[in-house]
């Protein structure tokens, strides 16, 4: 029962995080901010959702599989984001901290 409530809270939070990340990736003004929105909530959303499902699965093979999924997602997600940001930076796309565009839209 307590586990059900916990898993419900985690899943709802995770769904909210994922949704916010998606909106952020669509609405943010430039590439690096979009990447921030996508990646940060990506990892948090993944943790919340997978742990929420794990609470429902109980102690079984499925939980172990979910744990592996979580570990791989957490390993590959930030690495892919880092590599992408690195490639974008090397290609000459400068992160703009304080642009007119940023000021006008904030």
């Amino acid at each position: 029962m307590l586990l059900d409530i916990l898993s419900w809270i985690l899943l709802c939070l995770g769904g909210g995080f994922v949704l916010v990340g998606g909106i952020g990736a669509l609405r943010m003004p430039n590439f690096y901010t979009r990447m921030h929105a996508a990646s940060l909530t990506d990892s948090t959303g993944s943790i919340l959702i997978v742990v929420g499902v794990m609470c429902q699965a109980g102690l079984s093979l499925a939980t172990i599989k979910l744990l592996t999924i979580l570990i791989f997602l957490l390993l590959t997600g930030p690495t892919a984001t880092y590599a992408l940001a690195n490639a974008a930076l090397l290609s000459g796309m400068k992160p703009q901290a304080d642009t007119d565009e940023g000021r006008s839209s904030s």
Partner: peptide
């Protein structure tokens, strides 16, 4: 991607 340390470490692990 030998010059990219982080992808290489994680990739080797995978």
């Amino acid at each position: 991607l030998r010059h990219h340390l982080i992808p290489q470490v994680v990739g080797r692990l995978l």
